[in-house]
Design a protein around this nucleic acid. Structure first.
Length: 399
DNA sequence: AATGGTACCAACCGCATTCTT
DNA sequence: GAAGAATGCGGTTGGTACCAT
């Protein structure tokens, strides 16, 4: 069963493409179009894997891509989209016409990330990095955060991790690797990851199923999940090296911080409950949303736990007060547990994700942002920074 | 001129998902 | 429905150019 293999990899050429190869690929695609990458190399007279041909075409040869320096506007777009989407380069690339995901990824890794680090900005949330005191003796973790959405990478480069590189074959494991595997087993055994998965499952069910989980169910489920989960204690684990110890301390600290997402979710669910009775009156019969908002994803980043909603299309009822027609990202600051609605500020921008006929706007609830510090920003994208508790509470209540 | 460090980026690799048989 | 290849995506590597010493 199944298909025949696409190519014999042993006979395939690797490395940089020559001008002749490029020309062959271009000529073939101009005649026959893209697709059927499996058979393309042979038909085009190329000793390349179909995968390699596809990559070469999409990232370099196709005519509808723009190469060269990214503009200021493109740069800002990447920063904001990365703050909302994380390392989903293909999704980010869709909002930057004529730019490839590979180019954006390279630009981010080689330039933008460093620029943001220099400026002292958290590359996930684009907010200033908060200083979180570590319970361990190791250095603060503030600069070691993963830039990924929902997982934590081992920051090998920055902590002097001198273990041999065994990831290519996976045959020989260092002592540190073995130790980390043991830790991973402990984490899995603790039930913490199950708790996170359960939370995400709720979100997943909510987005895929017409039978939406009721607010009461969400509240009770989130409660039980929060009660069940606990952060594993790494203090008794012995390490074989100081770097491993530092790494483990960082992991432990990171996991402790992860409990914030539960608080964030809990606060959100509480607001859902509170808003239940009030929402009808506050919307005053207006049909604000064309579709029911549903939680589709929970990004459990400790620096910026985020609840992602499906795209909610609204009429322009908010237009006079603030430029957020709809919101599908709600990102909490580091102290979501504070939950003081009066200090909640919305930073809304006129930045549209996709808007053939409707608008979708990124919208961050920044609970710790003092009014002055945000208002001082001169960034064009944040030129609509307004305190509007009534609108915020109305929106939250409806959600 | 030689050397070392850094930045850039094309290309590769592995994994997850989708598709075909 | 199962098996396995094709495809798409994100992480990483390695070659090259450039710059500082």
């Amino acid at each position: 069963m199944g298909r025949t293999p696409c190519c014999n990899h042993k006979q395939m050429k690797k490395g940089a493409w020559t001008v002749e190869e490029d020309q062959k690929l271009i000529t073939y695609i101009q005649t026959h179009g893209t697709g059927s990458w499996r058979t393309m190399p042979q038909k085009a007279g190329l000793q390349r894997c179909g995968k390699s041909c596809r990559l070469r075409w999409f990232n370099y040869l196709r005519p509808d891509i723009k190469r060269g320096h990214l503009s200021e506007e493109e740069e800002q777009t990447i920063i904001r989209l990365h703050a909302a989407l994380g390392n989903r380069w293909s999704s980010i690339a869709k909002h930057l016409p004529m730019r490839t995901d590979n180019e954006i990824k390279n630009y981010w890794n080689s330039y933008l990330k460093k620029q943001l680090d220099i400026k002292g900005l958290d590359t996930f949330s684009t907010k200033p990095i908060c200083t979180v005191s570590s319970s361990s003796d190791s250095e603060p973790i503030t600069t070691q955060k993963s830039k990924s959405n929902d997982m934590y990478m081992v920051p090998s480069k920055n902590i002097g991790f001198h273990e041999p590189n065994t990831n290519q074959q996976g045959s020989s494991k260092s002592e540190s690797s073995q130790l980390l595997n043991k830790v991973a087993k402990k984490i899995v055994g603790s039930g913490y990851l199950d708790a996170v998965k359960s939370l995400q499952l709720i979100a997943g069910n909510n987005s895929n199923d017409d039978n939406i989980v009721t607010k009461n169910e969400l509240e009770s489920k989130s409660d039980s999940i929060i009660k069940q989960s606990h952060v594993p204690n790494f203090s008794t684990i012995s390490s074989h090296s100081s770097t491993s110890a530092q790494l483990l301390n960082k992991m432990a600290t990171s996991l402790c911080q992860k409990s914030h997402v539960h608080e964030a979710a809990r606060a959100m669910f509480s607001k859902l409950m509170e808003g239940d009775a009030k929402s009808e009156a506050s919307t005053d019969g207006l049909n604000l949303f064309e579709d029911e908002p549903k939680i589709t994803r929970i990004i459990d980043s400790p620096s910026s736990p985020t609840l992602t909603f499906n795209e909610v299309l609204t009429h322009s009822c908010f237009l006079d007060n603030w430029q957020c027609f709809s919101s599908n990202y709600i990102s909490f600051g580091n102290c979501a547990a504070s939950g003081d609605e009066s200090s909640v500020m919305i930073r809304s921008s006129s930045f549209c994700i996709e808007s053939p006929n409707n608008y979708s706007t990124l919208c961050f609830l920044d609970e710790n942002a003092p009014a002055a510090s945000v208002a001082d920003k001169s960034d064009d994208y944040f030129n609509e920074i307004l305190m509007c508790e009534d609108e915020i509470s109305k929106y939250i209540q409806y959600l």
